[in-house]
Design a protein around this nucleic acid. Sequence first.
DNA 1: GGAATAACCTGGATGC
DNA 2: TGCATCCAGGTTATTC
Length: 314
Amino acid sequence: MPELPEVEVVRAGLAPAVTDAVIEAATVSDDRALTRHPPGAADFERRLVGRRMAGPARRGKFLWIPLAAADPGATPTEAVVAHLGMSGQMLLRPSGAPPERHERVRLDIRHPDHGDLAVVFADQRTFGSLAIDPLQGTPDGLAGGLGTHDALVPAQVAHIARDPLDPGFDRRAFRATLARKASAIKRVLLDQTVVSGIGNIYADESLWAARIHPDTPADELSTRAVHRLVAEVQAVLEKALAEGGTSFDAQYVNVNGQAGYFAHSLTAYGRTGQPCPRCGRPIVKVSFTNRSSHFCPHCQRPPRMSGPESIRPR
DNA sequence: GGAATAACCTGGATGC
DNA sequence: TGCATCCAGGTTATTC
């Protein structure tokens, strides 16, 4: 499932191909890919033709490609925003390549160095979507996300918090937010308005690494535990990024259709019944809202059995 | 206002 | 072999 590392792999893969390329044609083959673009397919296609693209940027699981202003040197005012959902793929294909399975949108582009290419958005489960969205200034004045120096972010992404790999991520503010949340820490990690880019897989992996039970109330974590959690989240995301992301099946591939290797490095997620790499006891899986949590019940003690680091600091 | 939950969706895996 | 059911989960609207 595309979480931060997977989306970053896609962003980095798209960058050399789309930066400075001009959109020659846009074809929407399934309107469900435009749920974030209320004006619809005709509007989407019409507004993209002839536009030149700038370098793609990313915040959390959101990706956007600024559309260059008509006046060279002027700041872009809008962007193509993409969210891959659960199964979305952004694929680079030769111009005229046959339709991909589950293809939803195709952009035929012309790059000054690479020639004619097709950017294909394919999505099996149709949870992903594209949109053309206005860019707005960031409240903190920092770059909108990774891959851009502009302090701009699409309106649809403005409510999304900075991710743990963003240079602008504020660890102190994150800690303060946790102190105000009585919800389970895993739920908070999945709240993209608190910290972005983390999904079910990396939440389980980070909590395992930090030895924190997923049901631990966020406001019961000590400062030390929060710092350890942030460090483990960053380490897990960076390792997954270095390994090209996590691919369980064909749901996630990079722009060239290749799978990532981090699935081989998972310590908790998807390892139900297998020995914990730390203590050897079996990893358990429990129902968590409408999904599942994987953890080691020995290394990650429940809140009521927690050690000194999980006791309320206040 | 904050927190919890349901719904959206498709195809692979599983059970009968 | 074929059909029915379950499961995966990111985001958002709805409900409490």
